[in-house]
Design a binder for these strands. Structure first.
Length: 429
RNA sequence: GUGGUUGUAGCUCAGUUGGUUAGAGCGCUGGACUGUGGCUCCGGAGGCCGGGGGUUCGAAUCCCCUCAGCCACCCCA
C-alpha cells in the first residue's frame, strides 16, 4: 500500500479519473443526447480512437495549432504514423467515404459521443483528454440543414436546462468569395500593421482571419472598421446565410450575428457558429460547428456538402454545476439489504441476494463480517428501502424478517417466498 | 510553449518568528445498544507535510530543482 510517493504512478497530465459520481454524469448526458438526437434522426457512430495521421493534417490544416503542436502522434510497431483523434469530423467523413454511406438516402445524419486528445497545457475547461458530443449531417447544401443542426444544439442545451448559452453565428463564405475577401482584409491589415500586436503581425501573413480572434484590446479596437466577411459574401453565400437566419427565427432560436467569429479548423465554409457561456472562464465555448462543403471531396469522395457541430462535455458539466439547475449527485438507492445475524447463514444470504438481483431488484449484503448493528447502519446509509434480516430463530422456522426501513414496520416472511413477494412489491414479475 | 499561483490524512483545511511524538471537521471503522438503522457520546485506523537536493544543532515552515493542480496567455470543446 505504501509505495513511495515518488514511485507512484499517477494519471497523466491533463487527464482525470471519472470516479462513479462523475462517470454517472457523463453517462446521463450520453443517454439524454441519445434521446434528443434520435428525435432529430441522428444515429450513433463510433470510429477508432486513433487514425492515420494524414487524416488530421489534411483536414484541420497544416498551419493550425492543433496540427502543428497539439496532436498525440506516434508510430506503431508496423511503422505507421498514427494520431489519437483531436476531433471527430475528419474520422466521420473518412468513414462516410470508406463505407460509401453517400449511396444511402441523403442526408446521412450521425452523432458521436467520444473522447478526444490534444496535447495542450491544461487550464479551466481544457484538458488533454476530453469528451465531445457532436453531430455530422452529410449530403445537403440546404440552409435548413444548417438551421436544423444549430437548433439541435440549442435544444439539447435547453433539455439540460443550461440557460447561459449565447449562440453566435457567422459565415465564412465559399471558394468564390473568401479568397477575394482575404485579400481585401490582408491589404487593410497591412496598412494598419502598426496598430496590431506582434502576434497579429504574424497572423496576418499566413491566416489573416485569425486576427479577429485576438484578445488584445488594441487589436480589437483597430479591427472596428475592418472589412467583414459577411459584408463581402457572394450572392449565393448571402442567400444561404439569409436562409439560415430566417429559419432560426422561425423556430425561435435566439442568436446573434458575430462578424468576427473565426473557428479553428480550415475546412469550414459558409455557416459557422459557436455557443458561448459566461459561466466558463477563458475557455468559454460550450461548443461550435459549421458547414464544410469541401471536406468530403477533398478526401476523394463524391462532392458532398455537410454541416456539423461538437459540444464539450466537461464544459457542459461545468456550466451545469455553475448554474446549479440540475442536481447531478443524486444519492444511490438500493431496494434491499440482507442482514446476517449468525454467520452460519452467510451463504444463504449470498444466494438470496443473487436471487433478488436476478429478478431485477438491487440487493446488497455485508462482506466485512460486520455486527448486526453495523449492518443496519450500512443499510441505512445505502438508502435501502427494506432490510431482510436472517435471524437464527426465524431461519430455524424457514422464515426471515422483512423490515421496511422508512416506517420501521417489520414482519416475518417465508424464506422461500420472500423474493417473489419483494418482486411484486417493487413491480417486477 | 510562456507567465502567475498553490501543493499538510480519502475530502475540506489549521499549523503561530524553523524547536521535542503533525492537528481539526467530515468520511471510514469499532463500541455504548451481547438480534435491529437514521440522533448522541466514546475509541481506532489513516500522513516520511507532492518528490529530490541544500542551509541549520534542528525544516511542514527558509533556498534551489522537479512533478502535479489551479488560473491566464496561446489556442479551442
Amino acid at each position: 500500500m505504501s509505495a513511495k510517493k515518488e514511485n507512484r504512478i499517477r494519471a497523466p497530465r491533463g487527464t482525470s479519473d471519472y470516479l462513479p459520481e462523475r462517470a454517472a454524469s457523463i453517462l446521463w448526458l450520453d443517454r439524454l443526447a441519445g434521446e434528443v438526437f434520435s428525435n432529430y434522426g441522428y444515429q450513433r457512430i463510433i470510429t477508432p480512437t486513433f487514425e492515420d495521421t494524414a487524416l488530421f493534417t489534411r483536414s484541420i490544416g497544416e498551419a493550425s495549432d492543433i496540427v502543428r503542436k497539439e496532436m498525440y502522434t506516434f508510430e506503431d510497431r508496423g511503422g505507421r504514423s498514427l494520431t489519437l483523434r483531436p476531433e471527430a469530423t475528419a474520422p466521420v467523413v473518412r468513414a462516410f467515404i470508406e463505407h460509401n454511406l453517400g449511396s444511402q438516402s441523403l442526408p446521412v445524419k450521425l452523432y458521436y459521443f467520444s473522447n478526444m486528445f490534444r496535447y495542450e497545457r491544461p487550464q479551466a475547461g481544457r484538458f488533454r483528454e476530453f469528451w465531445q458530443l457532436g453531430v455530422e449531417a452529410l449530403g445537403s447544401p440546404e440552409p435548413s440543414l444548417d438551421a436544423e443542426v444549430i437548433t439541435l444544439a440549442a435544444d439539447f442545451l435547453r433539455a439540460l436546462d443550461i440557460r447561459e448559452g449565447l449562440m453566435k453565428i457567422g459565415s465564412m463564405g465559399d471558394e468564390n468569395c473568401r479568397p477575394q475577401y482575404t485579400l481585401i482584409l490582408q491589404k487593410y491589415l497591412e496598412e494598419k500593421r502598426d496598430s496590431f500586436c506582434p502576434d497579429c503581425g504574424e497572423r496576418l501573413k499566413f491566416n489573416p482571419l485569425r486576427v479577429f480572434d485576438c484578445k488584445n484590446p488594441e487589436c480589437q479596437k483597430a479591427l472596428g472598421d475592418a472589412p467583414k466577411m459577411i459584408d463581402h459574401l457572394c450572392d449565393e453565400c448571402r442567400d444561404h446565410f439569409d436562409g439560415v437566419r430566417r429559419l432560426l427565427k422561425e423556430v425561435e432560436i435566439e442568436f446573434s450575428i458575430d462578424p468576427m467569429l473565426v473557428r479553428g479548423f480550415d475546412y469550414y465554409t459558409r455557416t459557422t457558429f459557436e455557443i458561448q457561456s459566461s459561466q466558463l472562464g477563458a475557455q468559454n465555448a460550450l461548443g461550435g460547428g459549421g458547414r464544410y462543403d469541401r471536406l468530403v471531396s477533398d478526401y476523394g469522395g463524391k462532392p458532398t456538402p455537410a454541416v456539423g457541430f461538437a459540444l464539450g462535455i466537461e464544459r457542459l458539466l461545468a456550466a451545469l454545476k455553475a448554474e446549479e439547475n440540475v442536481d447531478l449527485s443524486a444519492p444511490r438507492k438500493i431496494d434491499v439489504f440482507l442482514i446476517v445475524i449468525d454467520s452460519e447463514h452467510r451463504d444463504q444470504a449470498f444466494k438470496l441476494a443473487i436471487e433478488l438481483r436476478r429478478i431485477g431488484l438491487s440487493a446488497e449484503v455485508d462482506y466485512m463480517n460486520r455486527s448486526t448493528r453495523s449492518q443496519m447502519k450500512l443499510a441505512d446509509k445505502m438508502g435501502a428501502e427494506y432490510a431482510l434480516i436472517l435471524g437464527p430463530d426465524e431461519m430455524a422456522r424457514g422464515e426471515v424478517v422483512l423490515r421496511n426501513l422508512s416506517t420501521g414496520e417489520e414482519r416475518p416472511e417465508k424464506l422461500s417466498l420472500v423474493a417473489d413477494k419483494l418482486g411484486k412489491i417493487k413491480g417486477f414479475e
